[in-house]
Design a protein around this nucleic acid. Structure first.
Lengths: 226, 226
DNA sequence: CGTAAGATTGAATGGCCTCAAGGACAGTGG
DNA sequence: CCACTGTCCTTGAGGCCATTCAATCTTACG
């Protein structure tokens, strides 16, 4: 998942309904269940598979020797991760919570392996990935802390938000540290920004992990530039 | 071109020698010459072609309605740009100086169009692009102004630097504003950082566009964290 | 209840930005 | 040849936002 721009010309992630997934994936597909915290692959691992998230959330990270870390993306249901560069994976990937992922052999992307439809889907996912990352550049380079956090919540709400009895809520499966490393901020700044959005009456925090969206319009405003 | 990390596990851009390009591109390829400032494509244009830079430098940009701009990448000889998302281009692309680009039909990436070798090359370029952009995230999110500018000069030197009579130099075809929008800084900060590197004796400025690298080791040090 | 991990809040610093002015340089026309 | 002009680059002063360092609060869990 990337925090894209509201006005982006490309609709990067129309969330793929599970039903659609079922029909477009060969019956004999390989599915793996992952416990919370389980790693899918590590930087330097041989890239044998590409992974399609069915349920749960994956986290892609990169680390520098000096400890600085960057969360590249959160992969939500419908997202595809693990595109290789050469023969190796170039990020770490682990499950934030319990997950189900579909495994695609790398060859399915490279030559279709006899299934043109899968080939097309994987290639399209790779190209969509490029576009989404370009949008994400804007975030990291040009947005303020408030804009970043608000954008983050907007995207998360659009993709995994729940409306229930007139209440709009978001479950944050990731920790503050993950959000900070994803947005290029510190934990403290993320926390302060949540507090600020709360004091503004835009959101409410049922718990640290559960966000209630009180005013979607003002959240959208906060995610854009002044 | 992305400013990647020195310690990145992926060698994203082994500069492809022109000779190699020649041999791997079909003889009947389509080449286009571009004048300085000419645009290759604009956001929203139909993506009919993918472009491989042979000579010169291309600039990929994205703009927000409020004027904030992000330079996504500089494309140097050997780089491939214009990967579509859906049927459209999602960035602007123009030539910074006179350029020669090779045109590949979009179908060559999508189905090989009867040439498996070209298909393989384009797909590999797309995957390399993903990896390079992930590295670039580190830059935008986690590096200081000095580290950004030093990294930028390092990459540019590795890819287009000239050693001549014991002198190492870099031609900057792009303006300060382009560098700033690429690194997520302001023009003033980029200029000040150049001055600071000059005062440190790490570089020297023959002109605003010509950088002499006096101390490669210290430039490398400046590009990494403390 | 005690411990540990995560989240929040406070105070102070600093790095980058903003606003503003001046300098370098090429192109143009008198 | 030389002002004139526009563009780009540099430099300065001041302010703000995010960070850093540090302490407290919350929550989960044995």
């Amino acid at each position: 998942m990337y925090v894209t721009l509201p006005n982006a010309a490309t609709d990067t992630h129309r969330p793929t309904p599970v039903v659609m997934l079922r029909s477009s994936v060969p019956a004999a597909r390989s599915v793996r269940r992952l416990a919370a915290g389980a790693h899918v692959f590590r930087e330097g691992d041989a890239a044998s598979y590409i992974y399609e998230v069915q349920t749960g959330t994956l986290r892609l990270t990169r680390v520098l020797e000096n400890g600085r870390r960057q969360v590249i993306a959160f992969a939500l249901p419908g997202d595809i991760v693990g595109f290789p560069n050469g023969d190796l994976h170039h990020t770490d990937c682990d499950a934030i919570g319990p997950c189900e992922v579909i495994l695609h052999r790398r060859e399915a992307l490279e030559n279709g392996e006899g299934n043109p439809e899968t080939h097309r889907r994987l290639l399209a996912a790779a190209l969509r990935e490029i576009s989404a990352m370009q949008d994400h550049f804007m975030m990291l380079a040009r947005k303020s802390a408030t804009e970043k956090v608000a954008s983050f919540l907007m995207v998360l709400f659009e993709r995994t938000g729940i409306r229930e009895g007139g209440i709009s809520m978001i479950e944050l499966y990731m920790k503050r540290a993950d959000i900070a490393d994803f947005l290029g901020l510190t934990i403290e700044t993320v926390s302060r920004t949540f507090t600020q959005l709360r004091n503004s009456g835009i959101i409410s925090l049922h718990s640290a992990q559960t966000v209630i969206v009180l005013d979607e319009d003002r959240l959208a405003d906060a995610s854009e530039a002044a």
